[in-house]
Amino acid sequence: MIAAERRPRDAYGQALLSAARMGKPVVAVDGDSASATRASLFAVEYPDRCINVGISEQDMILTASGLALAGKNVYVSSYGSFLVGRGYEQIRSMVAIPGLPVKIVGSHCGVSAGEDGASYQMLEDLALMRVLPNMTVLVPADYTSALALLTGAADATNPVYIRLGRTAVPDVYDDGDDDFAPGAGRVLREGDDVTICCCGIMVSEALRAAAVLAKQNIRAEVIDCYSVSPLPARVILNSVHRTGCCVAAEEHFARGGLGEAVAALTASFYPVPMKQVAVFDKFGQSGTFEELRGYYGLTASQIVGAAVQVLTMRRR
């Protein structure tokens, strides 16, 4: 069966609408990117609550900080490379240090930016955001989880970073599922042989990999670690206790993302052999999404290979 595909970023405008209709003083700040980030859907109903500050990411974050200081429920969104890259110092000084509940939504992250090439393909955003104290970092796997996480973020009392890609991805969750929260994870498939921690587009790849492994009698446990920070530590540790080995898969540099977060967790509490499926020490480049996924090894078959390797390394 081929799952339906939708673009998680399409959830952005919808989530803003839902939060505003619940009576929250939602304001959306964007940098001349509302049609790309889908803030435009919100703008139709709440034109006064949309602020386009033009092509100026530093000013976007500063404006968002000021709006939050005055009590607004602020979402700020633009291309991940520039929002996080150029706005990083503003995010650190004027959002993270004062702990303002600004929702920072990076779109077009990962190699999903495709033909736009290396400058647009943000592969280090999780690393940059994860190191900031009190910053929640969320990476939804599909449209439904994106909608739930974006809408739920309206209740946050601390800064939140939400990573979205450009392209459509297979649905993982049923419509209306809203059982998502910072610090939680979802076990999508149970198994006692190998743990697969994944996020974003790699969740559906991990599920495909688990199906392949099952044919070889290898039972993989797939955990959607959409909350990269704080990590769903108990869920992950509970799983590696049983499996004794782990694969982490993400559309991000191997350095600093989900894989290293999981490695740090397991190293501290229950060390197990581990492999990462991620982008190793290379920037992106132009190409189709599919070509790039193949070239950088962000595929189900890479997860299968990594799972087999860690299985042979485990000691039980």
């Binding site: 304001v27 602020i51 500063l62 404006t63 709006l67 005055a70 004027m94």
Partner: peptide, 15 residues
Amino acid sequence: SLGQGLGVANGLALA
């Protein structure tokens, strides 16, 4: 951090 006060003031004024 220098150069950031005005942007924050803008946000306050807009709100």
